[in-house]
Amino acid sequence: MKIDMKHIADLAKLRLSPGELESMERDLEMVLAHIERLAGIDLEGVEPTFGSREPAGVRLQQDDPKPGLSRACLLELAPSARDGHYVVPARESEGGR
């Protein structure tokens, strides 16, 4: 199988050099070669399991505001902050969601 490495790296926001992409591709292909066995299993009518069976339904919490963390405490961790805000570089014009 041919993986579009550039596209996957883009989705994961991992800028890899051409050399890194190449060795990464080799690694992934070796792993996928093993995993390919999954394709041979008869899974007709089998429901997927995504998590545990217990608790059967999620617990809900009270709608009752509580103080969280102080702004100072959080912004101290921030690589860049200004006027009570986090700061990031603007996106390029052709970027976007």
């Binding site: 009752d64 505001p65 509580k66 969280g68 963390l69 702004r71 912004l75 805000h85």
Partner: peptide
Amino acid sequence: GSKMFCRCSTRFGDPPNTNVCP
């Protein structure tokens, strides 16, 4: 009164980054 997945207040117009938690 509080957010979808935590207990921070949803109040509109508070100073930036004051209703926040982990």
